[in-house]
Simulated assay, not measured.
Amino acid sequence: MTAHTPETTGKTYDVTKTDEQWRAQLDPQEYHVLRQAGTERPFTGEYEDTTTEGVYACRGCGAELFTSAEKFASHCGWPSFFDPKDSDAVELLEDTSLGMRRVEVRCATCGSHLGHVFEGEGYATPTDQRYCINSISLTLRPTRA
C-alpha cells in the first residue's frame, strides 16, 4: 500500500491545481515530496538546524503551518516541531505505507505531504509529539526585527 496523496484520496482542498500546474510550480524533488508523499534524505534539508525566528509556510500554497517557537532540536535528520501554528493548519491521516502504522501530516489548505507526527518518544516538549517535517515542503518567513 502506498501513502495517501491528494490525487488518490479525492479530497477537495481550498487550493487545488492540476498535476500539470503542480509540476510547473515545483521542481522534481519538491513534487516528489509534496505531491507523491516522498521523503528527503535525513540531514540534508535546509531547515533541520535553523534557529531563525519566523513562520514556516507550505511550499506548495504558502499557508502558515509552524513557527520557530514550536521548533526544537530532535537530531532526527529533519526539522521537528512539537505543535502546528494552528490546529486547523494541518491534517493528520493514517499511513500504513511501510507496513507499520504512522500518522502522515499534510497541509490542510492544499493537501501537500509534509511529513509524519510521532508521539511518546520522550522529548521534553509540552505535547510529547514530534512533527517530523521535510524541509523541502516548507518555506521560512523570518520575523522582521
Rank of each mutant, 00 (worst) to 15 (best):
A63S: 14
E91D: 05
L34D: 00
L93I: 11
A73I: 02
L26W: 13
S87C: 00
T125M: 08
V90W: 04
D128M: 09
D95W: 10
R101E: 06
A108V: 04
E121C: 03
R41C: 00
G115K: 14
S112N: 13
G54N: 01
Q129D: 00
M100S: 07
L93F: 13
D88M: 09
C132E: 03
A124W: 06
H4I: 06
A63V: 08
H116C: 04
T96L: 05
L98C: 10
C58K: 14
F72H: 11
E30P: 08
H75N: 12
E46N: 12
A124T: 09
V117G: 08
S80L: 07
L98H: 15
Y31N: 10
Y31D: 07
S87P: 10
R102I: 05
G77N: 10
K17E: 11
V105E: 00
H116D: 03
Y123L: 02
P79N: 09
C76E: 02
Q29L: 09
T125S: 12
E7V: 04
F72R: 11
C107A: 06
T50S: 13
D83H: 14
A3R: 15
S74T: 05
T125V: 12
W78G: 06
S87K: 15
Q29P: 00
T109Y: 02
T9Y: 05
C61S: 10
G111V: 10
